[in-house]
Design a protein around this nucleic acid. Sequence first.
DNA 1: TAAAAATACTCCATAGGTATTTTAT
DNA 2: ATAAAATACCTATGGAGTATTTTTA
Lengths: 302, 302
Amino acid sequence: MITLRQLRYVEAIARLGHFGRAAEQCSVTQPALSLQVKLVEEELGVSLFERLPRGVRPTPEGAEIARRAARVLAEVRDISDFARINREPLTGPLNLGVIPTVAPYLLPPMLPLLRARHPALKLRVRESRTEHLLDALADGSLDVLLLALPVDRPEFETMAILEDRFLLAMPASRKISGKVKATAELIKDDRLLLLEEGHCLRDQALAVCDLRESETGEAFGASSLSTIVQLVANDLGLTLLPEICLSVEAEGRGITLLRFADPEPQRTLGLAWRKSSPRAADCLALADVVGEVGRERKARTV
Amino acid sequence: MITLRQLRYVEAIARLGHFGRAAEQCSVTQPALSLQVKLVEEELGVSLFERLPRGVRPTPEGAEIARRAARVLAEVRDISDFARINREPLTGPLNLGVIPTVAPYLLPPMLPLLRARHPALKLRVRESRTEHLLDALADGSLDVLLLALPVDRPEFETMAILEDRFLLAMPASRKISGKVKATAELIKDDRLLLLEEGHCLRDQALAVCDLRESETGEAFGASSLSTIVQLVANDLGLTLLPEICLSVEAEGRGITLLRFADPEPQRTLGLAWRKSSPRAADCLALADVVGEVGRERKARTV
DNA sequence: TAAAAATACTCCATAGGTATTTTAT
DNA sequence: ATAAAATACCTATGGAGTATTTTTA
């Protein structure tokens, strides 16, 4: 019967192409590896490695078996992680991905709070656009994402945390009664400033204004909301801002904000993780922190 | 470090709810199991089972870990299977699913051929409609399907084997010049007889005639092509027949067949299997047999 | 109190280590 | 000729068995 130890050895040898180095990485001697590999080859009745004078090369079957072994080993690691995470949520390394239209506004208050509540957490943050984050989540280089829902990949679990309303930002120079509500028509008569393509916020803003990508004309594509706010302040157009960014981007910047009439357009922020992830408990704990910070941020600005 | 043996024990105990019976199934003594479970619980720091006076119940964490263990064990079994299948394709048990509009025509010639070429193969066949077959393939109760492509599930690998043209079947009483070609219009003026809902052939026939499901009127839903052929022979309507069925269903039955004009409508028959299946080599060997039988059957009839 | 799991203790199979030989270019 | 894998042989860990005790509704 095959053992996990044997799969570890086979995987390491396939990866390194060398019994000696694999032995070192597995913290055993080379003969120990040789023996186990021999046993596996006998048990399975296939030759796993082609022995060359300067190392080994996996046979086609060996390569496939090593790939499968790697999957098995990862899942076994997941079992240990699952147990540890359930024992003590938010400890150890956690790779978090955040979209650029959320990171600058929610991370600053989140990080100290996480540090205080979960001192054993080693958070590693990556900021990137939705599409890249989803790919990284799928291949395991990220554990959990903070982004705008919905996410259409069925292999991911998601959890909505926060409704983030959109407000219309216009130059402060325009005199508007405090009672006026924003509408899509108001925007169509002016120039809508957007983030560059690939930002989900761009697509959401277009949807709010009921515009297709093709109708945007020569719309400038900014790479950050601060840039856009500067442009708006200088009367170069209008934009939509999510409320979580207001305290950072809108105060004292020479812009006026207008709430939309009900139903107010909004995006839903939440977490996403692999359904098979052992860190579901972590995600729930993280969701608490995100929700807390988000609510506090909203309260401050609307 | 956790071992596969421990995962086997944990999985068996969770499944049976009883150390003693699990020990029996694992062919070890109960104390051996108890010890290994204890080691796992210590290593993971989680209690896996709630000990009751008449057996045990998995804790929530224990249940999740047992589920993951079952996955790991299945994948390890896959590794062994993969090796065995590569050593000797088409040996051992293989669960094949076939759609009802293919099974009666390709299986009869396939089975003796498989028996002759792969005497060690223990083929188990299930005949059902596409949807059920796909579900069974997904949950592992079938290993490979013989059906009409395409299949839209990304977790399955498919391989096209055979183009199976459709011919128009009409009552022999109608006098038609041998030169006339069938067209969709010819069918619309008459009554199209179809299989009951759920058969992919029904949908394909509707597509050929450019009809929606809603336009079929009170179309009778037959459960087999032979029934339909009888109806056609008695001048109750027309139907489309795939060429692989002709030698069985069309000879001496009082119907006339009409080829379609180019491009002739057709369905593509092929195999589907889980991408992760260890039996890809089996599938290729099986594809050879299907292709051979299919070509021979077509040659006989067109 | 009775069924079932845990413990105590012994044994042995097997993984691993050291020293050495064989292999392949 | 040389790097690297295979083999020989010994050691020791840990998994399994038998007998027995403890646990819990």
